[in-house]
Amino acid sequence: MFHRLSFIPGRLLRALPVILGVTIVVFLMVHLLPGDPAIAILGDKGTPQRIAALREQLGLNQPLWLQYATFLGRLLQGNFGTSLVNNRPVAELVFQAVPVTLTLLLFALILSLLISIPLAAIAATRPNGGRDLGVRAFTLLGQGMPQFWVGIMLILLVSVELRLFPVGGYGMTDAEHLYYLFLPALTLAISMAPTIIRSLRASTIASLGSDYVATARSKGSAGSALFRQHVLRNAAIPTISVIGVNLGYLVGGSIVIERVFAIPGLGSLMLTGIFARDFPTIQAVALVVALFVIIIGILTDVLYTLLDPRVNFSKEARA
């Protein structure tokens, strides 16, 4: 089966120009600022000395291509520059925030699967039945609600009224982290679930009507065993790529949700950076998040290949 993974080096190679392009976009962000970036960043705090110093620090006195080369060279060494707010290396700030956001995303993904799989199964067993309509109403609503508003509503119902979970923050210990991250993760899961449900419902209906399920039934398989062994495994495959595409969206959503729940992840880092006009920090977060999305895309392709024997991205198969 592993010869089918021979597409991986080629896939990585194809990601390279995209990664390079992402670094160019991130680099150019500073130059999109109207007028002199140094003046724009410093705003009303800009004395001539400070402007000159910042121009020097950002390398703005050099030609554009040289600035980019320097920027790229530093990135390759893991150097994201220095925060303009507290003079700490941005890489340090980012590396503190990445595990927080990753935990939140993973937690959200698990919760959204826990919500989606049973709901999709309920909906698919009798399409257009009462339960199916209920699930469809949920998916419709789930997509129409602003994510941050879902978070606030959960705070209102679960934290303020029921007093079950904290209204925000991150806690100190690992157990506390999970406790504090539950509501934000649920918020993200609620907005991610409709897409997964829709895809899983469609593929489950297809799978239930297939010959291999009829065969399994004729051999006496039924109930949850049939569902787990025959239906879900096959129905899950197209959903993998749907999840892959939407994880990128989850990453973007977490930026906003971290703000709602005051979680010290990449989103909070970026928004603090925005309000402090701390350009190196903003650039670093944008870059890390984009790399995230690119890596997720590659992982999705790999997982897809491993799960579905029919998918083959390798060269021999294409020829």
Binding site: P17, V18, G21, V22, I24, V25, M29, L32, L33, P34, G248, Y249, V251, G252, G253, I255, V256, M270, L271, I274, I282, V285, A286, V289, A290, V293, I294
Partner: peptide, 24 residues
């Protein structure tokens, strides 16, 4: 298509927030 791929790498909200900040 290369440019499209590059743009799709950035989550929508990250890009919108950064650009609105940059443009004022």
């Amino acid at each position: 298509m290369q440019i499209v791929d590059i743009f799709f790498a950035f989550p929508f909200y990250v890009m919108v927030i950064v650009l609105v900040f940059v443009f004022g």
